[in-house]
Amino acid sequence: TFVEFNGKKVEYPTPEAAEKAAKKLAKKLNLKVTKKNGNYKLE
């Protein structure tokens, strides 16, 4: 499962880990999380 932000793509071993990381990053970077095709994107 990938988390995409600032043009970077980071892969996580589980969807749970990706979701957790996405939410944490979104909060830190003041972005919102969108889920697309099972992957997460911060914008």
Rank of each mutant, 00 (worst) to 15 (best):
F5A: 03
N39L: 10
A17N: 04
L42T: 02
L31M: 13
E4T: 07
N37C: 06
L31A: 06
E19G: 07
P15L: 08
K32Q: 09
E16F: 08
V10D: 05
E43P: 01
A21F: 08
T34P: 00
K36I: 15
K20N: 11
N6S: 07
A17D: 10
A17R: 07
K36N: 14
P13W: 06
N6P: 03
N30A: 07
N37E: 11
T14D: 07
K35P: 05
F2S: 07
V3C: 04
K27H: 11
L25I: 11
K36Q: 15
N6M: 14
T14V: 03
N37A: 08
K41S: 13
K28N: 07
K35S: 09
L42G: 01
A22F: 02
V33K: 02
A22K: 00
K36P: 06
P15R: 12
V3W: 01
K20E: 13
Y12N: 00
L29A: 04
A18C: 04
A17E: 13
A17V: 07
K24P: 00
E16I: 09
F2M: 08
K27F: 10
N30I: 04
A17S: 10
F5C: 05
A22D: 00
N30Y: 06
E19S: 08
V10S: 06
A17G: 06
K35L: 15
P13Y: 07
K36A: 14
P13I: 06
A26K: 02
N39E: 08
K32E: 06
L25T: 04
E19Y: 15
A26G: 07
K28Q: 12
T34F: 09
E16C: 09
K41L: 15
K36G: 08
P15S: 10
K36V: 15
L42D: 01
K28P: 01
A21I: 06
T1E: 03
K28F: 10
A26P: 00
K24D: 14
N6W: 13
E43G: 06
G38H: 05
K27V: 10
T14W: 03
F2N: 04
G38A: 04
K24S: 13
T34N: 07
K28Y: 11
A18S: 01
A18Q: 01
E11S: 13
K23Q: 13
A22G: 02
T14H: 05
G38P: 02
E43H: 10
K41Y: 15
K8S: 09
K32R: 12
A22M: 04
K27L: 13
T34H: 08
K41M: 15
K41R: 12
T1C: 10
K35E: 12
E11I: 14
E11C: 12
E19D: 07
L42N: 01
K36L: 15
N37P: 03
N37M: 07
Y40W: 12
P15I: 09
T14L: 02
P13D: 11
K28D: 11
K32V: 14
K32M: 09
E4P: 00
A22Q: 01
T1Y: 15
K35C: 12
K8L: 13
E11W: 15
F2C: 08
L42Q: 01
E11P: 11
A26L: 02
F5L: 08
P13M: 08
L31W: 03
T34C: 07
Y40V: 04
K36E: 15
E16W: 11
A17K: 09
N30T: 05
A21H: 05
K35V: 15
L42E: 02
K27D: 11
V33L: 12
E4N: 04
P13S: 11
E4A: 05
A22I: 07
G38L: 04
K20V: 10
V33M: 09
N39Q: 08
Y12A: 00
A26F: 01
E43T: 12
N30S: 07
L29M: 09
T34G: 04
K23S: 10
K9G: 04
L42H: 02
E19A: 10
L31R: 03
K20Y: 12
K8F: 14
Y12Q: 00
E11N: 11
E19N: 07
V33E: 02
F5T: 02
N6Q: 10
Y12E: 00
P13C: 08
A18Y: 00
K8N: 12
N30D: 07
G7W: 04
A17Y: 06
K20H: 12
K27C: 12
N6I: 06
A17L: 13
E4R: 03
V10H: 10
T14S: 11
E16M: 12
A17C: 08
T14R: 03
L31C: 06
E16G: 09
G38C: 07
K9C: 08
A26T: 02
K8C: 14
L42R: 00
K23T: 13
K27S: 10
N39H: 15
N37Y: 06
F2V: 09
E43V: 14
L29Q: 05
P15E: 12
A18P: 00
N6E: 09
K27E: 12
K24I: 14
K8P: 01
V3N: 01
K41P: 02
G7L: 03
E19I: 07
E4Q: 06
E16V: 08
L29W: 14
K41F: 15
V33G: 00
K35W: 13
E19K: 11
N37W: 05
E19V: 06
L29H: 13
K35Y: 15
P13H: 09
K9W: 12
K32H: 09
K35Q: 12
Y40C: 03
A17W: 06
K20L: 13
K9P: 04
L31F: 03
K32T: 13
E4F: 10
Y40Q: 02
Y40K: 02
P15C: 05
N6D: 09
K20F: 12
E16R: 09
K28G: 06
G38E: 06
K23N: 13
E4D: 05
Y12V: 00
V33C: 09
E4Y: 11
K20S: 11
L42I: 10
V3G: 00
E11A: 12
P13K: 11
K35T: 10
V33N: 01
K32L: 10
A22V: 09
N39R: 06
A21T: 04
V33H: 01
K24R: 14
A17F: 05
